[in-house]
């Protein structure tokens, strides 16, 4: 069987530039950092949220709090999937009530992860607003969900897979599209 083709769509420098631009857009939209908390969706949304917080801190001189959110208990397909995803930590170090939360994830795809994340956040309190920041929007939405801040829009075919590699979790920074060569479905990785 032939190897699937890998096409790089973002390198380390462009990931960095995207996050810097998103940081500025967050500040522009919210007129500063007042009442803002970041929440990274486990697992790759977490390092992205931490990097965004550091960038925001470098610009504003004040680093916003970063929470971690595991959405697996809120998935809509638990009765269908064979392997239950490993449950990771949920920890929000700030008051959710009345906060403006910027939800951070690596890939926006069907929108189902975001739906689950919204429900999970609502169970933790009543935020004033929730905004969505993603590194990659690959299209193919199944729910009416839209990101407020997007690193890069990447047109994809449904059979392709988008891999976000980050140095914190994978050792290097890179976004690649994995294309099937022989029509074989290369999906299977969990992505939003």
């Amino acid at each position: 069987m032939s190897q699937p083709a890998r096409v790089r769509v973002l390198d380390a420098a462009s990931i960095e530039r995207s996050l810097t631009r998103i940081a500025h857009e967050i500040l522009e939209r919210n007129k500063g950092l007042s009442g803002i908390g970041l929440v990274g969706v486990q697992t790759r949304g977490v390092p992205l949220a931490q990097r965004l917080a550091a960038t925001l801190g470098a610009i504003e001189g004040r680093t916003p709090a970063v929470g971690l959110l595991d959405i697996n208990l809120y998935r809509d397909d638990l009765s269908r999937i064979a392997d239950h995803p490993v449950l990771r930590r949920t920890q929000i170090p700030f008051e959710v009530d009345d906060a403006t939360i910027v939800l951070v994830d690596d890939v926006l795809y069907t929108g189902r992860t975001v739906r689950a994340a919204l429900d999970a956040l609502m169970d933790l309190g009543r935020p004033r607003a929730i905004q969505l920041a993603v590194l990659v929007d690959r299209g193919h939405r199944e729910l009416p969900v839209r990101a407020d801040f997007v690193g890069k829009n990447v047109p994809t075919a449904p059979a392709e897979r988008v891999d976000v590699l980050l140095r914190e979790t994978d050792g290097s920074d890179e976004v690649v599209i994995v294309k099937p060569k022989d029509g074989r479905d290369v999906r299977g990785e969990d992505q939003g």
Partner: peptide, 11 residues
């Protein structure tokens, strides 16, 4: 866990 023979699903 639902069907133990089902393939992993994507989101």
């Amino acid at each position: 866990g639902g069907d133990r023979d089902a393939p992993a699903q994507e989101r």
